[in-house]
Amino acid sequence: MTKRAVGAKQSNNPQSAIRDPHFSDAAHLRIVFVGHVDHGKSTLIGRILSDTNSLPEGKLEQVQRACAAENMEFEFAFLLDALLEEQEQNITIDTTQIPFKTAKRNYMIIDAPGHKEFLKNMITGASSADAAVLVIAANEGVQEQSKRHAYLLSLLGVRQFCVVVNKMDLADYSEGRFLEIEKKYRAFLKTLNLETNIFIPASARFGENITARSKKMEWHSGPTLAEALDEMTSLAPPTDLPLRLCVQDVYKFDDRRIIAGRIETGTLQVGDELVFSPANKTSMVQSIEHWQPVTSAERSPRAKPETAIAGDSIGITLREQILRVSRRVYRIFTLRAWRLRK
């Protein structure tokens, strides 16, 4: 693993959005499905994909045929668990990402493995999500990974989520069982300072309360899973925080000396006075460099950028050169932010 200055990734406020370059927009939401092993996450996702016609033509039938040929009971999960080992053991080994669409917007669904052996894969999947769906099976109730995954979500800063109590068919669609699990899990979430008002009783296997409202659970007045997803919001880039930019590299392909990196937080403008840490030297932004391809010269609105914001991968030149700026150890702050910090 490459060593890098991680300071800019750690905010004083752990709830801020400094988590990942994956800032989504309103039309795209990244959502991770987590929960205990065998509580039906992959099945739930397979069901949503199937019920919203998001699967390629013939895919469902193809998997059904393959299962029949090998005397296996068909599982929606096989649509995602692509590896032979996953299908043989009926378990998700590694995280998968699959695009999916409702009338409202585009989703990237992230399926995370529920077995404790694959926690690193669960974290890999969850770290880039805007929101999460926590899945608890009604028959088994709250289990070890139901708790651990919620804890990891809170550490990763994913604070927007809903809870699906799945496999309600194995609990006779009982409202009492649902409320029992809800109460217990709510109390646990409170210890993590997590909260959600959305608990959904569902059966992924039979498609109850996934995209269509269940007739077997008319006592449930809340949303279906699809409705709950559409209500979630994506994270905006943290432009209102002070500028932080980790130097990724310094290029000297021609007579320009370009300092390249991604803005982690805040904004940057031509003319800004910058502080380079750790040397604490200052210089001013001369330009934000941008490749101008010949073919689109007249069409591109980005010909000469004057401003860049959090999430942008940029290259800048400086009015006065600062020597020995190199990768990793160097971080850039705006002068104003720097003074405030001291």
């Binding site: 990734k9 988590r19 990942d20 370059p21 590896l83 080994i93 690193k120 894969n121 770290s127 880039s128």
Partner: peptide, 12 residues
């Protein structure tokens, strides 16, 4: 593919 490293927050 059965044992991939974790990867998140731009750390590879």
């Amino acid at each position: 593919y059965k044992d991939q490293p974790p990867e998140f927050w731009g750390q590879f």
